[in-house]
Amino acid sequence: MDSSAPTPSESGASPGPPPRLVNWELAASTAAKLTPAGPRMKAAEIRAAVDELRRLAEQSVDHVHRITGLDAARDLRDSEVLIIDRAAWSKANARSFEVMLAPAITALAEKRPDQLKSATTAVGSAITGTQMGAILSFLSSKVLGQYDPFCSLLPGGPAAGRLMLVAPNIVTVERELNVVPSDFRLWVCLHEQTHRVQFAAAPWLRDHMMEQIGELSSSLVEKSDTLGERLQQAVKAAVAATKDSGKDDGGAPGSSLKGSILELIQGPEEKAVFSHLTAVMSLLEGHANVVMDAVDSSIVPTVKTIRQRFNARGQSRGALENWIRKLMGLDAKARQYSDGAKFVRAVTRQVGMQGFNAVWARPENLPTEEEIHHPDLWISRMDLSRA
């Protein structure tokens, strides 16, 4: 081959779009087909639930502002609130996943096209759009709400983020718990609106997380020579955990699985980035839980009952659901809520909410995973005087 020959970009030819690791349109359509519609409701009941959720989402912002002291809660007009069904949630997340992966894939396509092709083959043989659709389908029936800061990167997306409340799931859970619907809906809105306020208070946070996610995905894709092998090892670990299911956790399938699929395919570099992202997610989820639990009966009259029944709900999951949750890392996410909330409560006890709010000032102020578990280390590093 003549090394002096012009490359496609030098000759003006378009290199074309980079290959895709997953067919996200197929994933979204598969999820929509597999996911049940939700609880049976009359048209008038659906309209009433949607209207109330929209009203309570707006009402909760004032409570978040009062509890957090973050002035960003005063004006959230650059982001939007959507009351959606399960299929819409799956479609929105499929698009967001593709957006989050796009920078890494585009960069790799420009620098190492052959390696990206190899990675696409390795991943494609293990994870198809149909399989990803099945995962989205499972998640779409569990998520009550979500703030998506990355949708602003989509063509025609909102200027900031998008808060989604999954109405069928909220109604399903409030019926399962037999709690007052309006109280439960406000309680959920408090948590989700706190996420919206977090990203408004720290406008750098979205780009910081995108950078970290891009670094993680780039590292995984660049190691295409071992990616297929690591994926196979992850699957084998999941199968072994299923066979070994009777040894602990009451015999729930997958109870001996030590990590999620994502954790099992990481190398040392990926683990460092994953540790940082874990700390950030623990902070965000824990802070939202603290706000959610800071309300009293004057705001949510039946809040104590809701807390008790919601916390007990996780103990009644079936064996199959427990296995899927562990395999996908959802147990780790549950721990993030708990660990992050402990961190926030410990810090605010010592330096108050205003002292804690230093965390939103810049990326360097984010806690490490070690600091999440040892709040005194973060307080010392921030040089905050104790209250």
Rank of each mutant, 00 (worst) to 15 (best):
P149C: 06
P158H: 09
W187C: 06
A107G: 15
P149G: 09
L53N: 04
R74L: 12
D71H: 12
G318D: 08
L154Q: 11
G38K: 06
R230C: 05
N322V: 12
L153K: 10
A272L: 07
A358C: 10
E371H: 06
V295L: 07
L56H: 04
L186I: 08
S90C: 10
D293M: 11
L327Y: 03
S219T: 04
T35Q: 04
F199A: 00
S96Q: 03
A358G: 12
V351S: 10
A119E: 05
H63L: 13
L231N: 04
K111V: 08
A122T: 03
A88C: 12
E215K: 05
Q193W: 04
P155V: 10
M210H: 04
L283F: 08
P367K: 00
G145P: 01
F150W: 10
T305K: 12
I372Y: 02
D2S: 14
V347S: 06
V173E: 03
T305E: 13
L26Q: 05
K42R: 15
G267P: 00
V295N: 09
A31R: 02
S217T: 00
R309M: 12
V99W: 05
N289C: 12
G38Q: 02
F356M: 06
K342F: 06
T7F: 07
S256R: 07
A294N: 13
A167K: 03
Q146E: 15
D114M: 14
G129I: 01
L144K: 02
I105W: 04
T226F: 05
S96K: 07
V290P: 01
D148Y: 02
W360F: 14
L216I: 01
V61Q: 06
L21P: 01
E321Q: 15
I379V: 06
A31L: 06
I324L: 15
D248E: 15
I46K: 09
E10W: 08
G124H: 06
L108R: 03
V235M: 11
T242Y: 10
A159L: 13
I135K: 08
L163Y: 05
R95L: 11
K342N: 12
T226A: 13
P168L: 03
A107F: 11
P253N: 08
A48Y: 12
M41N: 09
V143M: 15
L220F: 03
P158T: 10
Q198E: 04
E10I: 10
I324D: 07
S298M: 11
A240F: 14
I213M: 09
G16K: 07
E270P: 01
V291C: 04
M328A: 14
A73T: 01
H208C: 00
I127C: 13
A240H: 13
E369F: 07
V344A: 07
S9T: 15
H374R: 10
R307S: 11
A201G: 05
A341L: 08
E222S: 10
L377T: 05
